[in-house]
Design a binder for these strands. Structure first.
Lengths: 165, 165
DNA sequence: TAAACTGCTTGCGATTTGCAACTGGTTGTA
DNA sequence: TACAACCAGTTGCAAATCGCAAGCAGTTTA
């Protein structure tokens, strides 16, 4: 690992950790796709990451404190990857990036619907989703709200678009 | 150029354009450091990009419509790079990334002050700064406000920290 | 007991990176 | 008019990284 940093600028330091074509996609799949195992991240992603790259990025994200890994009690070989608070707080970065991509790049309808809802919901919706992530990844208890969760709503919207086509 | 995209996901598409260690730093320098010429971007950055990488990234950013290039009337060899509206709207992405880095990475005091002010100012301050960028890069007229601009305030805060040390 | 599945690792060719030197031209100064 | 400094890049090359495919040892399922 190269521990020397080019500068102490927060944007630069962030890019030294996350500035590649895969790291944030892994975070995205953990957040929005609820992928928690190696195989899930490997095979259930749209983009088809290769296993060596995935292993390398997971190691980096572990080292940086963005995710954790624990053994799965139901399967001796499986590991469960979870987001840390530091990882969960990447949601606003992803949300802004999704909003920008939605506005300016050739986004497909079914994969754009989450970005649209997230953008329309704004920081308030992001905070609610982050609370859900804290519950699912950090095991924190949360006041039960009425109706479906943000994650469920995003997923339902996605499936609705897929089924309509 | 590889025009094939891995998926139509807005986050993925954004990363295919900006997912490397330099592109967003160039945008950052254009926004916050007001670097507009090749040499300025090359020599006045903290991180020391090399000229071939800079040339390559500028070409990509041009192709993607994130920046434009025009001849400098005062110097036959100089080109002036400007942000487009699409480029200016990357500010919230940078702001969120800066806020995250400021919170979790070993940011230096002088280079972190801008991130702190930007984070404290929130979306309202970002919008004001984006209006200033539109004035400087797109030539749009803007209602004159009282007092120093956001860019000036950020710069003053940075210099204040530098001088104090 | 065999097939499928688990989280990775390894080999290797192709691409990308980054340093350094260089190019062809322009501008400022004496 | 000469010359140094400055301009936006380009080129060559070694090193690092990427990404495909195959492989591996252990575990679970049928």
């Amino acid at each position: 690992m190269t521990d020397i940093s080019r500068s102490g600028c927060p944007i630069n330091l962030s890019l030294e950790v996350l500035g590649d074509k895969w790291s944030l996609l892994i975070i995205r799949d953990m957040m929005f796709g609820n992928r928690r195992h190696f195989r899930e991240l490997l095979t259930k992603s749209e983009e088809g990451i290769s296993s060596n790259i995935l292993a390398d990025r997971l190691k980096t994200l572990l080292d940086e404190g963005i995710i954790t890994r624990e053994d799965d009690p139901t399967h001796k070989q499986k590991g469960i990857y979870s987001l840390t608070e530091q990882g969960i707080e990447l949601l606003p970065v992803l949300a802004q990036m999704a909003a920008w991509g939605y506005r300016y790049l050739p986004v497909s309808e079914e994969l754009g619907i989450r970005a649209r809802l997230l953008s329309e919901g704004g920081p308030k919706l992001w905070a609610e989703f982050m609370d859900e992530l804290r519950e699912n990844h950090l095991g924190l208890k949360r006041r039960k709200r009425a109706g479906p969760s943000v994650g469920e709503r995003l997923q339902a919207a996605y499936e609705s678009v897929v089924n309509r086509k």
